[in-house]
Each structure stands twice: as C-alpha cells, then as structure tokens.
Amino acid sequence: MTTEPKIIGFLCNWCSYRGADGAGMARLKYPPNIKIIRVPCSGRVSPELVLRTFREGADGVMVLGCHIGDCHYSTGNHRTAKRMPLLKKLLEYTGIDSERLYINWVSAAEGEKFASVIRDFTEKISTLPPFRETMK
C-alpha cells in the first residue's frame, strides 16, 4: 500500500521522550510519519485528546510512557494502563480498528526499542486504509 499514514505520538517527558532522543543520538532510522508531542506524563493523555487526534485525521495514535513502576510521577502511568485499554475497547465496539491506538512503555535507555516500536507501528498502520476514508 502506498498511503502515507499520519501518526501522532504522545510521549511522556521523562522516559519515552528521552528514549526517542536516545534513538536520535544513536542515529537509528525510522519512518518520518510520527510527530511527537511531549506531555509531562502518559497520565496526562486524556481519552478526549486521543479522540480529537483521530478526529483531525490521524491514522494512528501512540501513547508511550515509562514502564510501570518507573513513572516519574510514581503512579501516573497506572491510570494510563487502565484508561487506554478501555478506550481501545470502545473503539472496537464502535467498529474502529483498535490497533490504531497503540500503548507501550519505553524507557529513557530504550532508544533501540523506540525505533523498532515506531517502525512496526508505522508498518502496521500503512496496511490499513486511511482512517478518514474508513469513516466515510
């Protein structure tokens, strides 16, 4: 498929954003589709924000945070780990491919993991039709 998926990533400032920086420092290459938005903690990402991002036409949304137990705010990401799976369920119940919403944990040291997570997700989303089109 030749579509260029549009992907927005909400990354927590302390782990995942640094992990993304780490990928850069190691000059690891990954597709340019993702645009990263820095949030203090993955717990800051409200379901509304994710939904609005889809409404703008994102084909995929990523929420990346610190590993459970490592959240800079102790348990901010515990809430992420509960809210986001529920939101995925809701997407599913509405007939939207819930794989368009991706949750994972990437630490500041995991530049390698970050790059591969982005590659895999971009590839996965590329196989889906553009989100807007599926909604027509």
């Binding site: 949030v39 203090p40 903690c41 717990g43 800051r44 990402v45 409200s46 379901p47 509304e48 924000l49 800079h72 705010y73 901010g76 809430r79 809210r83």
Partner: peptide
C-alpha cells in the same frame, strides 16, 4: 503530572503549560 486532567470529565481542572 496532569493525571487529574484526564480524570475530570467536565475538564474543570487543567495543567498549566500543558493545557488542552
């Protein structure tokens, strides 16, 4: 951290510098 923001349904709490 802003965790509260995602919990407030009517969005009456906001996080400065990371507002909606």
């Amino acid at each position: 951290c802003g965790t509260c923001v995602g919990s407030c349904l009517p969005k009456c709490i906001s996080l400065k510098h990371f507002t909606d």
